[in-house]
Each structure stands twice: as structure tokens, then as C-alpha cells.
């Protein structure tokens, strides 16, 4: 994709940079706070008998699985997005399957090269366009239509959907990740470890069930690292070589 040139912000763009980093940060902080108020209210004032210990345990289990991506993803996308779009992208989501293609289409529409001032502005405008469409279609089709749909669908259908949604999501996502990564060795390690943990380790030590995913992640990382193919050289700035081979942003899944 594009290479971020640290000096790309010339004098003319200084105002744009200043406005977007200031307001980008303020709006993202506001989004962060708003996204936490809802669940906090249910947890602390919902009368649901939830202790701080419950929340910590759940959070730590999730952190053990996804914590790596909190840091890795901003690092991966920064060279492609530039600082202004970072504050947009991590709030809107769907970076690699929607925002990046939208930016590239816009750049080619106005013949702006990525990494130039024109390219930057075209990308930001394209992401704004994509955000508008995304927000409107979510509000309309999920917020209004979806809520109505769920109110008329028979309860038993909803119960079945709820009961089997996890396997319905996970089967497809696993295949998608394997297809995106195209890395045979780590894939085999990951599946072998998962089978081992699920069918040998957890039955032997049932207390480990709640940490099973974290164990799977740690073991796969360790095996993939020590069992890596040392004949392959990995290049710096993965984002630069097209699809960012080998990096694994959550938005790809």
C-alpha cells in the first residue's frame, strides 16, 4: 500500500493536521466513554448481582486472548492510514474490507497518488463518505428494521438462533482466517493444539476450561515462533507490501 512519509504534512496541510488530531482525539475519547457507560450501568446499577471480581475475571480472559491486537493493530494500520484517519478508522471499524478499498477507489477517481497531500485528502474524504453510508445503513436496517424484525419473529426461532449462533459464526470465521493467512504450519499447530486442549487437557483439568482460549493462543504463538520456517525472511513494514501478508488485523475477519 502506501508508505507514510513522516514529512508529508507540508505547511499548507498544517491546519488540517492540527484540526484532525485535536478533534480526532476528542471525538474518539467521547466515543470510548459513551461505549462504556451502557455496560457499566447494567453491571453496577442493573441489580444483576455482578461483583468486580466477575468483571475482572471476564476482562482478563478476553485480554489474554486479544490483548496482543490492541497494540499490534494500530501499529499495523498507521503507515497505511496516516494519523488523521486513525481516529476515524478505529471507531468505524471494518478497516481492511471497507475503509481501505473506499480510500483507494477515491484516490484513483481523482488521480491522487497515495502518500501525497492530495492522496491524504482524497482518502479522508472517502472515509467520511464511507462513514456516512455505514452509519445510515446501520441505523436504518439494523436499528429500525432489525428491531422490528426481532419483535415479529417467533420466540422459538430466536431461541434457536441464540443457541447456535456461536458455532454458526466460528466455523466460517476460522475458515476465513485460515484462507487469509495462507500459512500452513501455524494453521496445523493451531488446530492440533485446540484439539489437544479441548479433548485432553480440559477433561483432565476441568478448572482450566475458562482459560482454554488463552492457553490455545499462548501455545500456538510459542509453537509458531519456535517452529517457524527460518528460510523465510520477514520484511519490515508489512503494510507496505500490498495485502500486508502475515499481519492479522481483526478487521480482516
Amino acid at each position: 500500500m502506501t508508505t507514510q512519509i513522516p514529512t508529508r504534512a507540508g505547511a499548507g496541510m498544517a491546519g488540517f493536521e492540527a484540526t484532525t488530531s485535536r478533534w480526532g482525539r476528542i471525538t474518539m475519547l467521547a466515543g470510548l466513554v459513551l461505549s462504556l457507560i451502557g455496560p457499566c450501568y447494567l453491571v453496577f446499577f442493573g441489580g444483576l448481582d455482578i461483583t468486580a471480581g466477575h468483571v475482572w475475571l471476564a476482562f482478563l480472559a478476553v485480554a489474554a486472548t486479544f490483548g496482543i491486537f490492541w497494540i499490534m493493530e494500530p501499529l499495523t494500520y498507521f503507515p497505511i492510514l496516516g494519523s488523521a484517519a486513525m481516529y476515524q478508522a478505529f471507531m468505524i471499524g471494518n478497516i481492511s474490507n471497507k475503509l481501505l478499498p473506499a480510500a483507494i477507489v477515491a484516490q484513483s477517481t481523482v488521480n491522487a497518488r497515495p502518500g501525497t497531500k492530495r492522496g491524504d485528502l482524497a482518502a479522508v474524504m472517502a472515509i467520511c463518505g464511507a462513514a456516512t453510508v455505514h452509519l445510515v445503513s446501520l441505523l436504518l436496517f439494523v436499528g429500525v428494521l432489525g428491531t422490528w424484525l426481532i419483535s415479529i419473529i417467533p420466540m422459538e426461532l430466536i431461541d434457536v438462533a441464540r443457541l447456535y449462533i456461536l458455532p454458526a459464526v466460528m466455523g466460517a470465521v476460522l475458515v476465513q482466517i485460515i484462507a487469509t493467512m495462507k500459512q500452513l504450519r501455524p494453521t496445523l499447530f493451531a488446530i492440533a493444539i485446540a484439539l489437544l486442549v479441548q479433548f485432553v487437557l480440559v477433561p483432565l483439568v476441568p478448572q482450566l476450561a475458562m482459560g482454554a482460549t488463552a492457553i490455545g493462543v499462548a501455545a500456538t504463538i510459542a509453537l509458531a515462533w519456535f517452529g517457524r520456517d527460518r528460510t523465510v525472511t520477514h520484511h519490515a513494514h508489512l503494510a507496505d507490501d500490498g495485502e500486508g501478508e502475515g499481519t492479522a488485523p481483526k478487521e480482516e475477519i
Partner: peptide, 24 residues
């Protein structure tokens, strides 16, 4: 670069292999 390439990939494969297998 090697760590940046291998760790996220392995973490994602590890997490979702485990989550998928646990449903079976």
C-alpha cells in the same frame, strides 16, 4: 519484523481454532 508477522497470525489462528473446536 519476524515477530510482527508471526505473533498476530498465530494468536488469531490459535484463538479461533480453540473457539471453533470448543463448539464441536
Amino acid at each position: 519484523p519476524a515477530a510482527m508477522a508471526i505473533i498476530p497470525c498465530a494468536a488469531l489462528l490459535g484463538a479461533f481454532s480453540m473457539l471453533a473446536v470448543a463448539e464441536a
